[in-house]
């Protein structure tokens, strides 16, 4: 096993290609497209589990209507920056 140096970049996951069974028809693989949101458009709503001041809570973006929200994503806990 090769040693992995700690850094903020997470190594790409090597995924094996799924075995495609021979089929008489070629099935079109639906590729999920993830497009960037747009400024001036509604933020996608969500509910997510969270940790907040010692408690586990569910946070729904819609609970923040009427307030300014700074929503920050990051690669992972315990990453360095």
């Amino acid at each position: 096993m090769a040693e992995v140096k700690p850094g903020c970049d997470r190594p790409a996951i090597k995924r094996n290609k799924p075995v495609v069974e021979a089929a008489s028809e070629i099935l079109e693989v639906k590729k999920e497209e993830h497009t960037m949101v747009k400024v001036g458009k509604p933020a996608p709503t969500f509910e997510a589990p969270a940790f907040h001041k010692g408690q586990f809570v569910n946070v729904n973006l819609e609970d923040y209507k009427g307030k300014w929200v700074l929503l920050c994503f990051y690669p992972g806990d315990f990453t360095f920056v």
């Binding site: 996951i13 993830h34 001036g40 933020a43 209507k65 994503f73």
Partner: peptide
């Protein structure tokens, strides 16, 4: 949904969004 998930490494990139009181980005 926000377009910042990196499929290759399976994590979110450092995306930061300002959302106003009407829920508009």
């Amino acid at each position: 949904m926000y377009g910042i998930y990196d499929e290759d490494s399976g994590v979110e990139t450092r995306g930061r969004f300002i959302i106003d009181p009407d829920g508009i980005i």
